[in-house]
Design a protein around this nucleic acid. Structure first.
Lengths: 346, 346
DNA sequence: TTGTATGCGTTATCAC
DNA sequence: GTGATAACGCATACAA
């Protein structure tokens, strides 16, 4: 009884398993390393004993010598939108299947990235880092994280992050927004929209700026007026108020292109429940992302879809390839967008 | 140049900092341990050099000797609802402030908890574990995680998890649902509801069962008919279809009490956009949780609120206290609920 | 206050 | 295929 308890209480170690199975410490180590050479029956016996003793190799000790933590750091904004939550979710599932665990870190709400956080995170030695904030330059990140190579999301023709070339290596996820936005604008135009408003996201957001630029460009190409730009921050409440202002203080619009779905929801609710306008009758609305809520009947939102599964797969590919060949040249994965037509344009 | 590169490329170690600052290895260690005794000016110089060399103590090495990983494991369902995402979010922020990082693990969608996952997680030696799935008994969890003491969420009068006493220690977060539910039922009754339906969550969910039991109990106390129980699974789509069935196949109801807000949204949309009924005119709806979407104008949901901030604070208190006194008696934190009145009852 | 020696649990290297 | 030994980077007991 005491014997049993002390065995269970103490964290089972490789030496304990080795002693119990009458093998050496190293054999135990090999038993848990699939590509190490060990006589099959011996491995089976060791794994059996390990199971009985409730033993698992200690990742901390292992990472100390292998220089692989099997940890992927994710830096996310203080409070996440559904889109980000969903992506963290899917990424974690995908990475777990590859043997990596997600280590979550919260950045400040204003997307600022202080050195404190980076220093703190580095202590955990993540094998890779995905940052959901955009205003940190590659050079800064690479300077802090030694082993990890950052991945950046870039858009359409912008081949360099923020336009400035970086001296350090980083991998890229290129999102081709043009196709989706073009389809959306064409649909709006086809249904007679003439005054299109762009309801923006966070000012500092690269995605936001690129979306605005692209919409402006495409409207011009199709001979339409430039968009009425309305400031937002990706949140429902701000979008709601901004839409009220647009129609009460400003001259309104007959179509609203929102920088994200949540913003589109805010616009729709302001139009319907406060301004007494109908969607799509009086005003057409298009969103961006295609989060699950977009198909909820109250909104039934027409939106530009970035396929989450594709996106996650691309990111995981980048991570795994970089880990396999740490000194490889910068890698790029490309992602398309397309319009999902539902009920807010027509 | 080569000198600089090699210095930057190699992970800065305590020895390197010690050499550069002309102190011993141990001094560096002490410099990063606030309550270790070290001459202040010496500490400052060391920290200065450390900053220049981009050095951070290695958590893996540290945890190996301190037996503290500063990691909190969270086991969450494969795909998270807004409520869970929000809680993970808030918990991570709160824990980070206390020096802990969140380690995320995905369980299967069916809430099953296989040994593989637990074994895998244990390898990382989390200091504490929060499980968002409910069908794993304390004894099993404690058997697997040696250092960590599990925390369970229990409801109202159910003093024991699943009713069976457990031999192992675990801490409890007691949620008093009665107050909120009672307020909701009173409001419904006050507005003339007579046939109340309960739109359930996942069958295996303890929270779901307790909510159903409590609603049944309170309806009886107030002299009302028992609820028409409709099966659900916390998702929008299932709630939507279940509501259609309730009115097309079944006899309908004049009030729907949903097990969570997302389910309530599904019910509302089915009523308004498919069944042509008005909410709250024809049917009143109450939700549970009060997620951010509940105040969106399209739903404007009356719902029983479990305060997220309170809940997170309680959990963090439990975690910190248990870490400080690992052998303490089981601890309990209590949480209230209250009705948030909006526009779906009236 | 400071330094020396030892150990944490694991894998890599090298013999055999 | 197998086992001894030396790291990995850090914190602690102990002596000074």
């Amino acid at each position: 009884m005491d014997e049993l308890n002390s065995k269970k209480a103490a964290r089972a170690t490789a030496d304990l398993v080795a002693r119990e199975a009458n093998v050496s410490r190293v054999a135990v180590s090999r038993a848990f390393n699939p590509n190490a050479s060990l006589k099959p029956e011996k491995r089976d016996r060791i794994l059996q004993v390990a199971r009985e003793l409730n033993y698992t190799p200690d990742m901390a000790a292992r990472s100390l010598v292998t220089r692989r933590s099997h940890l992927v750091g994710m830096i996310v904004p203080d409070v996440c939108s559904p889109w980000e939550s969903q992506e963290i979710d899917a990424l974690t599932t995908a990475l777990q299947a590859e043997g990596f665990a997600t280590l979550l870190f919260k950045a400040k709400a204003d997307f600022s990235m202080d050195q404190t956080l980076l220093t703190y995170m580095r202590g955990f030695n993540p094998d890779s880092v995905i940052a959901f904030t955009e205003n940190i330059a590659p050079d800064v990140l690479t300077g802090f994280l030694d082993r990890a190579v950052p991945i950046y999301v870039i858009y359409d023709d912008a081949t360099e992050f923020s336009g400035k070339p970086a001296s350090s290596i980083y991998d890229r996820l290129l999102v081709r927004q043009r196709e989706g936005i073009e389809q959306a604008v064409a649909l709006l135009q086809g249904y007679g929209a003439r005054r299109v408003a762009y309801l923006g996201g966070k000012q500092q957001s690269l995605a936001n700026n690129e979306r605005e630029r692209m919409i402006t460009e495409i409207l011009a190409e199709r001979g339409m007026e430039p968009p009425i730009v309305v400031a937002g921050d990706y949140t429902y409440d701000t979008a709601y108020r901004a839409t009220l202002d647009l129609f009460r203080v400003g001259d309104g619009a007959d179509a609203i292109f929102a920088a994200n779905d949540v913003g589109a929801f805010g616009a729709i609710d302001a139009l319907r429940h406060d301004l007494g306008l109908s969607v799509p009758g009086d005003v057409k609305v298009v969103g961006f992302d295609d989060i699950p809520q977009a198909h909820w009947k109250s909104y039934n939102l027409t939106t530009v879809r970035i396929d989450l599964e594709d996106r996650v797969r691309a990111l995981v590919r980048l991570i795994l390839r970089r880990l396999k060949t740490p000194d490889a040249d910068p890698m790029v994965e490309t992602l398309g967008t397309r319009l999902v037509v539902r009920g807010t344009v027509g």
